[in-house]
Design a protein around this nucleic acid. Structure first.
Lengths: 135, 135
DNA sequence: CAGCATCCAGCACGATACTG
DNA sequence: CAGTATCGTGCTGGATGCTG
């Protein structure tokens, strides 16, 4: 009972996918979803469908390039749906798929947990830094 | 109602911390927790306290350096507690703090959600790639 | 065992410019 | 508006070697 697979099974889950295993494709998807911009993009889309530039405004600080890249990865994974109207000027709406909503809800639970704990975190940081002040 | 802060408030949350805002410290903590190795480290520690090298084995593929770095960040944020015994050879145990457990549970919910959706994800990827086969 | 220090390759990312 | 293309760089992160 040393391997990741063995532990996963011991934990009651016999799914074929295990993020703790080196080469599992679920790691990629998890990274797309939890990545620096992925998590914020998915979180922002939970508020409802959104166009490209509006999304850029929701996710403060994201560059055009990174948002585009992030959206492509999420679309490929079936988390985000892209709806393009062939009008002029072009209009493209992004929205979460049903799967995306599932993921977004867990993600937002985590985000809110972190946001709500920031006072504690900041205190912990102060204490940690204080013990190392002299070095 | 354009800014991240305004939206957050409109969404019913009037917390002072908003990850969608450019310079919010919660972004850092979220990244520590959701980062490539952070998420796996926190997830692995949810199984119980663990020594350095055992942790390295649980989180397949992590290098010494990255694990060390990750643990420091998590310790500083008050997610992980480090307990060192001054014995020889040295023995150090890492474990989640109460806050860490809160976070880990949300994180694992997300991880299991992703793991359980991988069949769907892989199908979506196939479909996506198929439509772009010719370019 | 539990780690820090150093080196360095690669790519993640931002800035800028251009297209339909 | 909604992107793609290209370029430059600073940081990420792996490999290696050393310490207590």
């Amino acid at each position: 009972m040393e391997t990741a697979a063995a532990r996963t099974e011991a934990a009651g889950s016999d799914l074929p996918f295990d993020v703790f295993a080196r080469a599992c494709p679920s790691r990629e998807t998890l990274e797309h979803v939890t990545g620096r911009w992925g998590s914020l993009t998915v979180g922002a889309l939970r508020e409802g469908p959104c166009r490209f530039n509006e999304l850029r405004r929701r996710v403060e600080g994201v560059s055009e390039k990174m948002l585009s890249q992030t959206l492509h990865a999420l679309e490929r994974d079936g988390i985000v749906h892209r709806e393009a109207q062939p009008t002029n000027p072009p209009r493209v709406d992004y929205e979460l798929t049903p799967l995306g909503i599932e993921v977004a809800d867990r993600l937002l639970a985590l985000i809110h947990c972190v946001e709500g704990s920031m006072a504690q975190v900041l205190t912990a940081r102060g204490a940690y830094d204080a013990t190392r002040a002299g070095r």
